[in-house]
Structures are given as C-alpha cells and as structure tokens.
Design a protein around this nucleic acid. Structure first.
Lengths: 209, 209
DNA sequence: CTGCAAAGTTGCAACAGATGCAGAATTGCA
DNA sequence: TGCAATTCTGCATCTGTTGCAACTTTGCAG
C-alpha cells in the first residue's frame, strides 16, 4: 500500500488537472476577458471535456475565488488560536491585518489578473463582498468569545466597523493603483482612527458654513 | 395634447404592467421560492410573454432589488443637500440612519418577502452587499466634499467604518428577527461606539487570561 | 374618423452556464 | 491479470439572457 508521502498517484493527477484548468482559465481571462471566455474554451485549453470542468470547480466564478477562499479560511482558522496576554483590541487589529494580507496577496503570475477581474466585474465584486461578510461574522464570533463582558450588538458593530473600514481602504487603494506598502499604511491609519474615535477628528466636529 | 396629469395612458399602462410583473413574481417567490420560480412562471402569472419580462426588468434579480435601489438612490440624492450649521459628524450619523431606514422599510405586502429572500439566498445577498458598497462610496464622496481638511484615506475609512457597522447591525437584527425599533437602538449604540472609539471600551483593553 | 408613425409586445432562434445520468476509460490494488 | 472504485466524457435538458424581426397597440394629426 502507498504511504503518506504524496497520497497516491491518483490524487496527484487530480491536482495537476485542477491546476491545468485553473491556469488555462486565468490565462484566457487575461487575454480575452472573463465574459468573453466560455467554459468550453477553458476546457479545450486545459485539454479536458467541458463536463469535467464542473467536477473541479462548482462554477466559473469559483475558478477565480478558490484560492482566495482557501486563504481566508486559513485566516479564520488562525483567529481562534490566540495567545494570552494580548488585549482584545490588539487581537482585532492583528486579525484585520491578516485578513487584508490574505486579500492582497498576489501569488504567482495570476494574482494580478484575479484582482483586476474582481474589481472590474460587478458580479465578481459582489461575490467578493459576500465572502468578506462571512469573514466579518467569523471575526464577530471570535470577539464575542474573547470578551464575555461585551454585548453581542457591540461585537457586531465592532467587527462590522473594523472589516468595513479595511474593505473600503483595500478597494480604494486597489482602484487607485497604490503600492501594497501604501495600503498597509492606510490601513494602520484607519485602525488608529477607529480606536481613537471620530470625536477626536477636528475636521469632523466643526460646523460647516 | 395630454397634460402633465398622469403622463398619458401609455405610461400608465406601462406602470400597471410593471406592477403586475412585480406582484406576480413576489407572490410566486413567496409561495415556491426564488430558484423554483422561472421567468416563464412569472410571465404567465402576470399575463405577458416571457420576452416582455425583460423589457421591464433587466434580470430576475432586479425584480427584488428595483424598489430598494430606488430608495437608496433617493437617499444618495439627499446626501448632497445639507443645511449649514451641522457638524460633519452629525451629517454622517444622519446619513447612516437614512440609509438604514431605506433598507429596512418593508413597504406593502412584499417587503418581508424581499428581505427574507435576500437574507437566505447567497447570490441575492451578494448583490445587496455590492449595492451597499456603492452607497459607501457615495457617502465617502460627500464626506470629502464636506471636509476639505480631511485626507482622502480618512474619508474612505470613515465611510467604510460607518456603513460597515450599520450593515452588520442591520443584518444581525434581521437574522435574529429583532423588532425594527430594536434595530434603531442597536444602530445608535454602534454609532456612539464609533464616535467614542474602541479605546473607550474597557472589555477590549484588558489582557485576556 | 382615419391613417400613419412611434412605442410596445411577442415569438423565435441562439448562446452560455449548470446539472443529472449513464456508459466508457482509467487507476489502485489484490 | 482482473476486479472494483474512481474519474472522465458525451448527451440531454433546463434556465437565464439577448438579438432580431414581425406583429399589435397607442397617440395624434389631418
């Protein structure tokens, strides 16, 4: 019998096929655009039948989101393993930063294409926002667990606030083509603002003429 | 020539047809569910041809969102007309409350069905979140215009924070079946939290054991 | 009242995404 | 080598969506 190693030839072949479909799809998306690429095109380029595509990805959208979803799931896992000694606020800050890093990671040659497609196709953007909302709920659950003294509504508000600010900052930086480092700085400023509160911003508290 | 009055028989008839399609669709969605209702079903129930459906709504989803979109557009319009004397912070608060009220308004007999569908169908939820994001950007633009002394990143963060908190609170209240009044109270608490800042919450700033 | 042009409606054909099903091909292992 | 499980494939089908051309209704001028 085969050992743990690579979990069998069968499994490896499956991974190779999946990767072939993924690579073919992203290449075609980059060349002709998302809507202009059909499942049949992708299947042909990956040398499988159109029907087989759906054995690997539940939908066309999922080709783009599979990786991002994996990374977000990983972050969500990590959220539950916290070392003592930190304050909840520090943990929230750290969580938000980690989620951001999972989102802006542009792995390999396809990352930039994924990001561009999500930003310009409303349907894909909608799905990304939904995934973000799931993450928000996960963060909220963690906050509730971490702070028994905190009302549930407050936990909801805090997670919504933190992830909402992050989401807007990331999208804004992306759309304006800012460098990744700039995004991180912007996020830090946003989080600082959240911690200090809006009352601390003079520009917001002076009556307008 | 016809006067302003009802803008002609033609227009009135169009409105009636639109309403018929809308009502038929919502009734069928409530009875059998969204996915289980086809365009053909809706058209038959509204006594028009399936092709005509698309002359009134660009897609099946739009039957559910047309009204909400209208209300949100109206709120966005109102954002730009502000009376002097208020502080930007007061205006932000007011804007957020107005957006919320546009979202939770359950007009007529179909409102509750719309809300339920959006909450339980991921695809519809995704679209709702996307619309919310557009509103966020509109609020951001207003903040920028209102506070010339404010950095753009900060405006982005503030709108993301405010609308993000509101969004989470509304969804949370909906999913737990809380009364509308409770939602308003919860939103007020969330906004207060945002104004004071997270540093003001003791539970967040004590190290966990 | 009548006819014409504009606006609205409809059927038809076509395409793409998605799904169920059954048979063919492949793989793992005894 | 052969069997059983797994995977791949073709086929039929359904649904949403769009373009097109023909048909019908409506508004209005003469």
């Amino acid at each position: 019998m085969p050992h743990v190693e690579s979990a069998g030839l069968r499994e490896r072949k499956k991974q190779r096929t999946r990767q072939a479909i993924f690579a073919a799809a992203l290449r075609l998306f980059a060349e002709r655009g998302y809507d202009e690429t059909t499942i049949a095109d992708i299947a042909a380029a990956a040398d499988v039948s159109p029907r087989t595509f759906f054995a690997y990805f539940p939908s066309k959208e999922d080709v783009i989101f599979a990786e991002i979803d994996d990374r977000l799931a990983e972050v969500q896992q990590r959220l539950s393993r916290r070392t003592p000694g930190e304050t909840p606020l520090e943990i929230i800050r750290q969580s938000v930063v980690e989620v951001m890093e999972a989102l802006v990671a542009e792995q390999g040659e396809h990352g930039p294409v994924q990001v561009r497609l999500v930003l310009e196709r409303p349907a894909l953007q909608a799905r990304a926002l939904q995934r973000m909302h799931e993450t928000k709920q996960e963060v909220q659950r963690q906050i509730c667990q971490l702070c028994p003294g905190l009302d549930e509504i407050e936990a909801v508000a805090i997670s919504g606030m933190a992830l909402g600010a992050m989401q807007s900052v990331v999208i804004h930086c992306r759309q304006n083509g800012l460098a990744p480092g700039t995004t991180r700085t912007a996020l830090d400023r946003a989080l600082a603002l959240m911690e200090r509160g809006l009352r601390s911003v003079p520009a917001l508290n002076e009556p307008i003429p």
